[in-house]
Amino acid sequence: MKANYRFALFAVAIPLLLSRCGGSGKQEEVTLRIDGSSTVYPISEAVAEEYQKEHKGVRITIGVSGTGGGFKKFCNGEIHVANASRPVTPHEVTHCTGNNVRFVELPVAYDGLAVVVHPDNTWVDHLTLSELRRIWESAAQGKITNWNQVRPTFPDQKLQLFGPGTDSGTFEYFTEAVNGERGNSRGDYTASEDDNVLVQGVNSNIGALGYFGIAYYLENQDKLKLVAIDDENDANGSGAVLPSEQTVQEGTYGVLARALYIYVRQDESAPAELDGFVRYYLDHVSDLARETGYIPLQADLLSMVRQRWENRVTGTMYPDGKEVGTVLKEKLQKGS
């Protein structure tokens, strides 16, 4: 009998607790919703953290569903800001337009893609873009397996490749920049969504070569050797160039430097606080980008971006969705 009462108590407690949980429906504060690229996440996180310290009444949430997933939610009208590590595609623009979502496209920082090898690799001083293509293009699958096939002067050493998985924006950008077509890549390399795994992989194989965002090189300089890249385009300076704040900003590092973006919703349904947040973002992004391992925009470019926001220039600077080979400054001048 005793056990019965205990059991009954338990059974009654469940619906009671449920109804109590449902009771609170108080009006909440303004929430600004951000989602998208994991590459841009650390920058937006830093800005949101600082902004909330000064603006207690505004809640900011950030999700990480990838650049593509972010645009999907953005164009559905579910979020206010999309983090993106590549420009919006024509397909996504159509989706946005179909839902009456207009946006302002704002570059906020650069990310350099680092090509790295094992620290004891003595033979590689630099690689040219065409050598990178010979290594990574889909035709190389199963064929280019030794360093001496990349350049005849390289030793007879097995080539082991490490790169991000096919869902990542880094993969999309790298394949487009190096192999000329988004997604064109050999498949027989070690892929991981976690760049730290790639760092480990390159660090434990003497014949390794890999690529990922420069932040991961900067944090692991003792475990990796950075490779200078010759983009074979003398218009932006000749010879092989290492990625650095200067070479990425000036464009001498070439096509392996890309911009990172935020896309801000611009229509009647956007909350008034969004404007203040975006201004705060653009005012502080340079310091915060550097702090989180990215490369800030030059001051004159940033003021053009600010102008772009003030004028609410809607639409994309990349109608065909292609960023590789374009110069950000020219794009911004044309757009404002």
Partner: peptide
């Protein structure tokens, strides 16, 4: 979500969970 600086205060609140936080930290440089 990944970045949330408030605690859930109703059934309709946005939220994050432990495994997401752990994964986000593991993949940082």
């Amino acid at each position: 979500l990944t970045f949330v600086t408030f605690l859930p205060d109703s059934l309709h609140s946005a939220f994050t969970i432990l495994p997401i936080q752990i994964f986000n930290w593991i993949s940082r440089p």
